[in-house]
Amino acid sequence: MPLSLISAADAAWYTGRPVGTIWRWASEGRITSHNGRYDVRELPGKTVDEFGDVHLGDPPPLPERAHRAA
């Protein structure tokens, strides 16, 4: 299946988190950076309820190698 790449700014909007969080997730190995773009399918999307409240999805898990190093 082809990648669905979006910019860091778009990833931040999609997840409801700051761009710095997207960059941190990539540096931690939680998501894959494709030359500064990110596959939307790896990202936890935010949801907005009928009252307009934003609910964030769970962050992507740390890769297994990070758990072993801790």
Rank of each mutant, 00 (worst) to 15 (best):
R68N: 13
P63H: 06
D58R: 08
P2V: 08
I22V: 15
A11R: 02
H55N: 07
T15H: 01
G29N: 09
I6F: 04
T15I: 05
T21H: 01
F51T: 15
E50L: 14
D39P: 00
I6P: 01
R17N: 03
Y38E: 04
Y38R: 00
G36E: 02
A69L: 12
P60N: 10
P18W: 04
R17S: 00
A8M: 03
S27L: 00
P44D: 01
G16W: 06
V54H: 07
H55T: 15
P61Y: 09
S4M: 08
P2M: 06
D58W: 05
A9F: 03
A9N: 05
V40D: 00
P63I: 06
A12L: 03
R24W: 06
N35R: 12
V19G: 01
S7T: 15
H55I: 07
G29S: 09
E28L: 15
P59Y: 08
M1S: 09
L3E: 09
F51Q: 15
G45D: 00
I31K: 01
P61F: 08
G16Q: 06
I6E: 01
H34K: 01
A70L: 15
G57I: 06
A66H: 08
S7N: 01
A70R: 13
P63L: 14
D53W: 12
E28K: 08
T15D: 02
R17E: 07
D49I: 11
A69E: 11
K46Y: 05
S27P: 04
P60H: 01
L56Y: 11
F51G: 14
Y14C: 00
D58T: 14
F51N: 14
A70E: 12
D39T: 05
Y14Q: 03
V40K: 07
P18Y: 08
H34L: 01
A69C: 06
R24L: 15
Y14E: 01
A8S: 13
H67W: 14
S27Q: 12
A69H: 07
P44I: 02
L56R: 12
R37G: 03
R37Y: 12
T32S: 03
A69S: 13
A66Q: 10
S4A: 09
H67N: 06
L5T: 05
R68Y: 13
S7W: 02
H55P: 00
H67M: 12
E28F: 09
R68Q: 14
Y14K: 02
E28N: 02
P60T: 10
V48C: 11
P59S: 12
T15Q: 04
R30S: 13
W25K: 07
I22H: 00
D39V: 14
D10N: 07
S4D: 11
W23L: 10
L5P: 09
V19S: 04
R68V: 15
V19I: 14
L5Q: 04
P61T: 10
R24E: 10
W13C: 01
R37A: 11
G45C: 03
A9Q: 09
E42W: 11
G57R: 00
L62F: 15
A69F: 02
A66V: 14
D53P: 03
E50Y: 14
V40P: 05
W13H: 08
D39N: 06
P61L: 13
K46W: 08
R24T: 12
A9S: 12
T47A: 13
T32F: 06
P18L: 05
R30L: 08
P2S: 10
S7G: 04
L56A: 10
N35G: 02
F51Y: 14
M1N: 00
A70N: 04
P2T: 07
L62Y: 13
R24V: 07
S27R: 14
